[in-house]
């Protein structure tokens, strides 16, 4: 029962983030660059719930985004699935209480996901490669993601511990009391 409620809340959060990304962050940009809140969400799901759920949510969110507005269907799905997978690896090896590790995790996932999507789009669509512009936009987007995750983290942490209790009640090893 609790798990279904948690899943319903997560799906509602996906819709809220999509509307935010489309309307608010289209305008509230740093030098014209928007953040990618979906990566933070998939990371959050992967860190606090079980391994399979992170990958499943990543692939479904990516697939939905691809079907809506992308020319290559499946690229974002695989990228977000990888982010979900990465989140479970981070969960086992890092503590979620330290600020530096959070920044590192968000940086690594953003860079990995966006580079993967860009490369695969280049392979399928034969787009023009402009490494300098891509690196500049990626750096600003990573910075924006880091700032947003620092702002949102107290909220995420509280919700996350509640969810973690539900999913891994007797196997929590990485939370220090």
């Amino acid at each position: 029962m609790k798990r279904t409620i948690i899943n319903i809340v997560l799906i509602l959060t996906i819709f809220i983030i999509y509307l935010l990304q489309l309307n608010f962050f289209n305008w509230f940009t740093i030098a014209g660059v928007m953040p990618n809140l979906f990566i933070i969400l998939v990371l959050f799901i992967g860190l606090f719930t079980s391994k399979n759920l992170g990958i499943i949510y990543g692939i479904s969110i990516g697939l939905a985004l691809d079907l809506l507005t992308s020319q290559t269907v499946g690229v974002t799905a695989v990228a977000f699935g990888l982010v979900g997978l990465l989140a479970t690896i981070f969960d086992k090896n890092f503590s979620k209480d330290n600020r530096i590790t959070i920044i590192f995790i968000v940086t690594a996932s953003t860079i990995l996901a966006e580079t993967f999507i860009y490369l695969l789009n280049y392979v399928f669509l034969d787009s023009n490669i402009n490494i300098l512009a891509f690196v500049k936009i990626l750096a600003i987007e990573t910075l924006y993601n880091i700032i947003l995750s620092i702002i949102l983290y107290p909220l995420i942490q509280r919700a996350g511990y509640y969810i973690e209790n539900e999913y891994k009640g007797n196997r929590i090893l990485t939370r220090y009391f």
Binding site: L22, V33, L65, T69, S70, I137, E141
Partner: peptide, 13 residues
């Protein structure tokens, strides 16, 4: 009715 939410592609619906 819809725009791309990525920074790297510009597709509209």
């Amino acid at each position: 009715i819809n725009r791309d939410i990525s920074n790297y592609s510009r597709t509209i619906v």
